[in-house]
Simulated assay, not measured.
Amino acid sequence: MKLGVFTVLYGQLPLEEALDTIAAKGVEAVEIGTGGYPGNKHANPHELLADRTKLEAFREAVASRGLTISAFSCHGNPLHPQAPIAKAFHDDFMATIDLAAELGVPVVNGFSGCPGDHEGAKYPNWPVAPWPNDFQEILDWQWSQKVIPYWKEVGQYAAERNVKIGLELHGGFSVHTPATLLKLREAVGDVIGANLDPSHMWWQGIDPVQAIRILGRENAIHHFHAKDTTIDPVNVHRHGITDMQSYSNMLDRAWQFRTVGYGHDAKTWADIISALRLVGYDYVISIEHEDGLMSIDEGFTKAVQALQPILMKEPLGEMWWV
């Protein structure tokens, strides 16, 4: 396994300065935003693909610091019911696939998207209850008419270019649990897998270790985010896990994102790392920093310090004691 980081936390720095800062922490891999909600401050795929000189300078900036690119990330809603919004997200995602293919980056991360509830809708609709029956009808229509057809087309395009798609299981989108990820994977193919982030499992009441085992048995984990979550034992009873308050309202929220080790202890994270190895995931653990109680540098540094002692870096040998 390698330790990596999602570079958007240093989006305020020029690329080379951000890479210097990251490399100095002892990190080996970077996940770079290329559009959508993370933005493209460090890698605009349209510009890089159009200018070979810029592309080679980008490649050299990463390689010269001993880093590898674990994934490009283009998280958006390509199924948004407003066509111009959907098209912008889609165009960035497709350009990101092309950029990944050009540079030999094996994974492009993103969201599944969430459609509206009918063809003329203006806003996404995320059904989360089976009754009244209208919700089931909406969900069936979304999957049969929007989610599966879209990802079949995009998945084929990516597979032809030897690029895997890592969908983040995130509330608010059609794919948000291990079951919904596997449902889409069954319909589209193994080009679809998870960019598994335990922070989103915890707030949904899902044990990340079990999520890893469920997805890992199907070889359906393409990438992994390291981010923590705390559940407030008082506020959760007032607001529930679907708390709609702003993330900035940390004192009153039911749950909040934390840096690694500030939501769950080292044993829990060691269990997660062990589960990943158990199912054969031996790729990058990519730190995502979204802790509202820590500065960017402090949160990132503490995550590195928490993960470095528990990562398993050496290849497995034979069980000499068997």
Rank of each mutant, 00 (worst) to 15 (best):
L3G: 10
G4E: 04
G4R: 04
L13P: 03
L13T: 00
L13D: 07
P14G: 09
E17T: 01
E17K: 14
D20L: 09
D20W: 08
A29F: 04
E31S: 07
G35W: 05
P38L: 13
N40A: 15
K41D: 14
K41E: 15
P45E: 10
H46M: 14
D51P: 03
D51G: 03
R52V: 11
T53V: 15
F58R: 05
L67R: 09
S70L: 04
A71V: 10
G76Y: 12
G76K: 09
L79H: 01
P81Q: 07
P84E: 07
H90F: 11
D91I: 00
D91W: 00
D92E: 12
I97D: 07
L99M: 08
E102M: 09
P106V: 02
G116V: 05
G116M: 11
G116F: 06
G116C: 09
D117Q: 10
K122Q: 14
N125S: 14
W131T: 09
Q136N: 12
Q136V: 11
I138S: 04
L139V: 13
D140Y: 06
D140I: 07
Q142E: 10
W143R: 08
Q145D: 06
Q145H: 03
V147R: 05
Y150T: 01
W151K: 00
K152T: 03
V154G: 01
G155F: 00
Y157F: 07
A158I: 03
E160K: 05
R161N: 01
N162L: 00
V163D: 08
S174R: 11
S174M: 15
P178A: 06
A179L: 13
T180H: 11
K183Y: 13
V188F: 06
G193D: 14
L196S: 02
S199G: 02
Q204P: 10
G205H: 04
D207H: 03
P208F: 02
I212W: 06
R213V: 01
I221G: 11
H223V: 05
G240W: 15
S246N: 03
S246E: 03
L251V: 13
D252M: 03
D252G: 06
R253W: 08
W255K: 11
T259A: 08
D265Q: 11
T268M: 07
T268N: 03
S274T: 06
A275K: 00
A275Q: 00
R277Q: 04
R277F: 01
R277A: 03
L278M: 00
G280M: 00
V284K: 02
I285K: 00
S286R: 02
E290L: 06
L293W: 05
S295V: 06
A303P: 09
V304N: 14
P309Y: 12
P309I: 15
I310G: 10
L311D: 12
L311M: 14
P315V: 06
L316P: 08
V322E: 08
